[in-house]
């Protein structure tokens, strides 16, 4: 009932932030001039800034945000646990490890889509490890402990690979892979991420009905004709694709999938199926806003997205833990 209204508001906010993102940067020649350069184009410096630097950056913020919001909502629906978030439970860190391996071995430069593919594979192994360690029932303690262990392992391996690189700047990249950034992205990254992300969106988007049924318990869902094995596989694969592609181009951007579903859940009446599209839009809104904020706070200095996301996400995390006190 509240759903079309909510989606409209989120889409409106996303559109507004998209335009603000396009108008944010070290060069500030005024709104009208900037938008004219974007729409009409040309060979001048401002046209290049608008069309080749800011437009892909804003597009990637939407794509990355939507992917992470969607993946968070779907994982939480599957595990029936509001703490199941790709960043928190180490799936993003595993994806980053896959991406770093593809880049340092030179595979990413040789094979098209090897970068998001390797990140997808890393994320898939991460999700697999979490489900294996914590069980698909979604017990909070097991989930969080498995997530901590996986995050620590994947981050350490990422740092090791980067330190072993012959490139003297590679060690500096540890910050990027662990905190995430959209600085200096181009349409090259948009093209790399889009196909794999689209695969993730389709898989996750179609799992809404199954997730709705799953709220009534696994047995009831099965009796309603939901193929649980297929649902699980679709969400695992979809999450790996969405998180893998997002991480491959933007590094680890944590907490999006935690904050967005948490905020939106009351508005959709705790329906995981309705939550999915809202979480995708909400994720886009949040990452757009964060990417605008990093450029306003420290213009031209590439403050990492992860810094802002943790500042917003950690209090939500605390709140969730506070609410879950005393429960098994």
């Amino acid at each position: 009932m509240t759903r079309p209204w909510l989606l409209g508001v989120l889409a409106g906010a996303m559109g507004a932030l998209f335009v603000i993102s396009l108008l944010t940067g070290v060069a500030d020649p005024g709104v009208a001039t900037s938008l004219k350069a974007l729409v009409l184009g040309g060979e001048g410096p401002l046209d290049i800034v608008m069309r080749e630097i800011r437009l892909p950056r804003a597009l990637l913020a939407v794509m990355v945000g939507a992917s992470l919001g969607l993946a968070g909502a779907a994982m939480q629906g599957l595990l029936r646990n509001p703490l199941a978030e790709p960043g928190v439970i180490g799936i993003s860190a595993s994806a980053a490890l896959g991406a770093v391996l593809a880049l340092q071995t030179g595979l990413a430069a040789m094979v098209p889509l090897a970068l998001p593919g390797a990140a997808l594979l890393g994320a898939l192994l991460g999700v697999g490890a979490i489900l294996f360690l914590a069980g698909s029932g979604g017990g909070t303690l097991g989930l969080i402990l498995a997530g901590i262990a996986l995050s620590a392992l994947a981050s350490a391996l990422t740092a090791l690979v980067l330190n072993l690189s012959p490139n003297p700047f590679a060690a500096h990249d540890i910050v990027f892979w662990m905190m995430g950034s959209l600085a200096d992205t181009s349409f090259t990254q948009v093209a790399i991420a889009a196909p794999v992300m689209a695969l993730g969106w389709v898989l996750l988007g179609r799992s809404g009905r199954g997730l709705e049924a799953l709220t009534l318990g696994e047995d009831t869902a099965a009796s309603m004709g939901v193929n649980l094995a297929r649902l699980r596989l679709a969400i695992v694969l979809g999450t790996a694709a969405a998180v893998g592609a997002a991480t491959a181009v933007a590094g680890t951007v944590g907490f999006v999938g935690l904050v967005v579903p948490h905020v939106l859940r009351p508005w959709v009446g705790a329906h995981p199926g309705r939550l999915l599209p809202a979480a995708a839009l909400g994720g886009a809104v949040l990452v757009l806003a964060a990417d605008i904020a990093v450029r306003r706070i420290l213009p031209g200095q590439d403050l990492k997205l992860g810094v802002l996301m943790a500042l917003v996400g950690a209090p939500v995390f605390f709140h969730l833990i506070w609410r879950m006190r005393g429960r098994p």
């Binding site: 880049l103 030179g106 690189s165 012959p166 490139n167 700047f169 500096h172 990249d173 892979w177 200096d184």
Partner: peptide, 9 residues
């Protein structure tokens, strides 16, 4: 340089 660095992308 040899090897990849995001800083050089």
């Amino acid at each position: 340089r040899a090897g990849h660095a995001h800083s050089e992308d």
